Computed example of a mutant assay.
Amino acid sequence: MISQKAKYALRALVVLARLKAGTTMMIGQISREQAIPKKFLEQILLELKRAGIVMSLRGRAGGYALLKAPEEVTFGEVLRLVDGPIAPLPCLSKIAYRRCEDCQEETSCEVRHVFERVTLATRAVLDSTTLADALKLDDIPV
């Protein structure tokens, strides 16, 4: 399950992805539109800024904007930045691998094999889905 922080980060980024090039949005407006606590959003946007995903401008015409094109920002990138590894088991993590304490042998672990398939499929979707793709999904009835 993704954290509330990651969900807020993705929602804020989708809002910024909708902006016309060269325009910004104030943090208060994002906070109100998306019902995200402003102080929490400030922390999230600062983290995204440090990662080079968003930029901020001060002053009257200030606010936040995407630094990268919506086609360049994947859900996987954002989730890893905010929540860390995308793996339901520590033995499946690429960046924070840790052998499961109760595991006798990874190569014959049935649980690991099933969740490895789930993890690979999940990563494939998240790493190939961009903010631009998410905007297109808005137009598709569910």
Rank of each mutant, 00 (worst) to 15 (best):
S108W: 03
D127H: 07
R112Q: 11
H113K: 11
I140W: 03
V73T: 03
R117L: 06
R80E: 09
L89F: 02
T122H: 05
L48M: 11
E110W: 02
E106L: 02
K49G: 03
V114M: 15
I36D: 08
R18D: 13
L16K: 01
V54R: 08
G22P: 09
L41V: 14
Y64S: 10
I86E: 13
D138P: 05
G28H: 13
V142W: 00
V82T: 09
L45Q: 11
I30D: 07
A51Q: 10
L135E: 00
A17I: 14
E77T: 09
A134F: 11
E47H: 08
A9C: 12
V114Y: 15
A35N: 10
L66A: 07
M25N: 14
H113T: 06
L92Y: 02
T74C: 00
A12M: 12
D138S: 03
D138R: 10
S31Y: 11
C100H: 01
D83I: 04
R11I: 11
K20M: 14
I44L: 07
P85A: 06
I53H: 03
V125I: 14
L120A: 13
D127S: 15
A12D: 10
K38I: 11
S31T: 00
T74L: 01
R80P: 05
E110Y: 07
R18K: 13
G52E: 01
V54K: 02
K49M: 10
I53C: 03
V73L: 04
R98Y: 08
R58W: 02
F115P: 04
L16A: 13
R117M: 08
V142G: 06
T119H: 01
L126I: 06
F75S: 05
K49A: 11
F115Y: 11
V54Q: 03
A69H: 03
S128P: 08
R18T: 04
C103L: 00
F75M: 12
T122I: 14
P37T: 12
T122G: 05
L13V: 13
Y97G: 00
R80C: 07
G59V: 07
